[in-house]
Amino acid sequence: MARPKALVDMSQHYCPGCTHGIIHRLIAEAIDTLDIQDRTIGVASVGCSVFTYKYFDCDMQQAAHGRAPSAATGIKRVHPDTLVFTYQGDGDLAAIGTAEMLHAAIRGENITIIFVNNAIYGMTGGQMAPTTLVGQVTQTSPYGRQIETQGYPMKVSETLATIEGAAYIERVSVDSVKHIKAAKKAVEKAFRYQMEGKGFSLVELLSTCPTNWGLSPIEATDWLRENMLPHYPLGVYKDKGGEQA
C-alpha cells in the first residue's frame, strides 16, 4: 500500500482528521487502477476542496462556485475520450450549484460528480447547508435546524435517481475501514462507467468536518455514524449498467 501515482506528493491543507483527504486518495487510486492518469481532467469547485487542483497529478480546472458540472460538460464534449470528474462539496453542489448539477444529470452528460456531503459549509466557517440535518447546530442555525423555517435536509442521491439521464448514483461513507473499501469500489465503478460511455454518474460520500462540527476527528466519525447514516442511507440508488447486466 503506497501513495497513488495520481496524487501529488505534498501535504494537503485540510484540517486534522478531515476526511476530504481519504476521498482524494480514493479518486487517485481509481485513476491508477484504470490507468487513465494521462487522460483524466478534474474540475475543482469552491469550498475547502478549492485547492484540489494542486493535489491531483492530472489536468485540472477550477470552476466558479457551483458551476463545476457546466465546466465539466464543456470539457467532456471537446475531449470525449477523457475521464472528466468534478469534486464538489454540499454547499457548492446542493445550494448555489443545484441547477447545474441537476441539468447535467437531466442531459445525461457523460461525466462523474464526486459529491462530498459533510452537512455544513466548511470553508466559510460552518454555516447551514441544504444537507444540514434537522436539529443540527451551525453558525446560521444556532438553535438547530428547524423544519418550520429552514425545511428538510436535501437528499441528493435520492433526487437524482428519479432522473432518466442519470446512469449511476451511489451513496457511500468514509467513516470506517469497511465503508472506505466500499467507497473505493463505487468511485472506481463510476469512472469505469464513464469510460464505457454509460452516462452521468454521481458518487455521494458522507464525510466529516470536525472543525465546524466542533468535535474531535474521532468524535466526528462517531457523529457521522450516529446522525448522518440514519438520514442518508448508503446504497446504490441507480445503476443503469447493472440493470442491463
Binding site: 500500500m1 501513495r3 483527504g21 481519504i22 475501514v177
Partner: peptide, 17 residues
C-alpha cells in the same frame, strides 16, 4: 491488515505486507 493506512486522511502510513 493496512487498516491504519486506509483510514489516514493524510497518507502518512505505508504498510509493507
Amino acid at each position: 491488515c493496512g487498516f491504519c493506512a486506509i483510514i489516514c486522511p493524510d497518507l502518512v502510513i505505508e504498510v509493507e505486507n
